[in-house]
Structure formats: structure tokens, C-alpha cells
Design a protein around this nucleic acid. Structure first.
Lengths: 159, 159
DNA sequence: CCAAACGTTCAAGAAGTTCTGAACCAAGAG
DNA sequence: CTCTTGGTTCAGAACTTCTTGAACGTTTGG
């Protein structure tokens, strides 16, 4: 049994959780590692070595993390290239984006069209879902705003 | 090119959307079909024939839909066995279940333990996420309740 | 201008997941 | 009791996705 650092084990745990959402394991490992590493920014080689992943996997995985808004590049003074870090506000940026729900609402609207419209009989299930997703789409951004307001009001800034 | 009914095409569309969440295509097809079929309840054989799936796939897929709370069995008068239908309140039951978020909150709490606790330096990213998920876990059930209240208040009952 | 480091891309292989089909079980009709 | 129908399970086939590793740009330092 190889000795795994606590950080490394954490990365594996994160991979398991994220896999549950249908995401690639490498994506979860990278995110988990970036959440607990010290310092909080890491170069590609550090990530590859730390997690036992190939350069290619790190490159692909980090692009995914970047485009999904969870990570960003930061310059490293005495180093060629860049490092990555998790954006402190990552979760807020992602949660506030309600376009995820739009796909579902549209699917339900499309469904209503298929069955013959709003008033066709036996369409309750579709209407409830459509209305629910529309509601969520409207309310989630508000909810996130409320979090931001309450949060920055309470305790601000890191150590 | 084989002719596909509008319902069948809708099932395929649903499969694409649901696959995006990491779910098996068969699961999405079954759900899509059950959302637009007429009558709204269908036996296993109807599902298998309608969707071009094997009996086995229908059985497995429908169990998944049942355990996830989206579909339920209904008796069929002149028929051996049962049929399936989408629960009209499916989405509400599923959305109100906030345990999905608990896994994430716990992952963040675990992360804080790994980095040395609440007050360790450079833990803003973890604390923000932990607090955000805790907030969501608390607020989502309330949000769903609000939807139910507003919805049943507005227009009730099907045709 | 050359060399070295760094990062990206992509084809091929590895790994994992999903689907099928046949065997099996259960329940009701005759 | 036996036959038929409906349903479930599971091993293997088919398929999809992920990861690797090598080739290729690009940039910086000497």
C-alpha cells in the first residue's frame, strides 16, 4: 500500500463525489487537490506529479475547470507559464448561472408542444415541471444574491 | 431513415438532456416517453416496443426511475401486472430533497479538517463553499414549499 | 539563433458503463 | 395442475468515455 498524503486522499474523495455527477475522475481530483493544497496555486507539473496524472490529463482537466468557472490561471513570478487556483467566489458564479435550468424548462415546453399544447388533457405532469423549472430559473439568482448579501455582511475577508 | 413518431423523437431529445447529467440514455428515453405518451401510463411491453429497448433495459431503467421518485406503478384493470406513469408531483419531491447538497457540504468540511481547520490561512475558498452549501441546504426546501404554496393557490387541478 | 521548458492536441489503448438476450421466477387462467 | 404471460436478473457483448504518451507549437533565456 502506497502512502498517500492527506491532500492526495482528499483529492480522491472529491473525485468520488464529482464522479457521482457524471464528471471525469481527473476533474474531481484536480479540484479536490486545488481546494486543499498549500500554496493554493499549483503549476501543471505540480498537479501532474501530486496526483499521478499525465500532462495531457492535467491540461484537459484544467481547461474544463477553467471554462466551468471554478479555476483560473495566475502568473507565477519566477516561473515560465502559469499556475492555477480555485476562484474563491467560484461556487457563487456557478450557482448564479441559471442557464442549467433553461434546458429543462425548454424540454418541458417542447413536450407540451408534442402533446398538443397547454390545454390538452393529461398534461399536468408536463405543466407542473415546466412551471417548476421556470420558478427555479427565476428564483435561484435571487437566492444567490441573498447569500452574497448575508455573507459579505457577516464576516468579510480571509485571514 | 426510419419514421419516428413525435413522441419517440421527444424521448430521444430527453435522453440527450439527461445524458448530460451523467444518466444512462435508456433512463432519459423512458422518462421522455412517459412524459408525452397517451395514455400517460404504459406497460413494460409498451415501453419496450415504443422505444426499441429490450425487456431487461426497461426493467432496469424503470426501477431507477421508480427509486429516484419520478415514476410509480399503477394497476391496469384488464391486465396482468402493472403499468408505469410519471408522478405529477415528481419534480417537487425530488427537488425538496436537500440531501444532494449535504455530500458537498461535508466534502468542504472534510477539506477544512485536512487543511488544519477553520482558521488556517488560505482557506477562504473552502469556507465560502462550505457556507454556501449549508445555505442552499437550508433554503432549498423553503423555496420548494413556496412554489407549492403559490402554485396550488393559482390554478389547481388538471383538465 | 539555439536550446530548453512548458503546454496543447490527438490517436490509440485502457477502463468503465450500458444494453441485450436468455434463463429463471411468479402469478393467474383454464 | 399445467400452461401462458409478465417481469426480473445477470453474464457477456457492444459501446462510450477517459487517460495516456508522443508529436508539435510557443515562449523565454542564454
Amino acid at each position: 500500500m502506497t502512502e498517500l498524503s492527506a491532500q492526495r486522499r482528499y483529492a480522491e474523495d472529491a473525485a468520488v463525489v464529482l464522479s457521482g455527477l457524471g464528471l471525469p475522475p481527473a476533474y474531481g481530483k484536480l479540484l479536490g487537490w486545488l481546494l486543499v493544497c498549500d500554496p493554493p496555486w499549483q503549476t501543471s507539473s505540480q498537479l501532474a506529479e501530486g496526483l499521478g496524472l499525465s500532462k495531457g490529463s492535467v491540461s484537459t482537466g484544467m481547461r474544463l475547470l477553467e471554462t466551468s468557472g471554478l479555476a483560473r490561471r495566475v502568473p507565477v513570478p519566477g516561473h515560465r507559464g502559469h499556475a492555477y487556483e480555485v476562484r474563491p467566489d467560484a461556487i457563487i458564479r456557478i450557482a448564479a448561472d441559471a442557464t442549467k435550468f433553461r434546458a429543462f424548462r425548454e424540454l418541458m415546453e417542447h413536450g407540451l408542444a408534442v402533446v398538443g399544447g397547454e390545454d390538452a388533457p393529461g398534461t399536468e405532469r408536463l405543466r407542473v415541471m415546466r412551471d417548476f423549472y421556470a420558478f427555479i430559473e427565476r428564483e435561484v439568482p435571487k437566492l444567490v444574491e441573498r447569500f452574497e448579501a448575508e455573507y459579505t455582511g457577516k464576516g468579510d475577508g480571509d485571514g
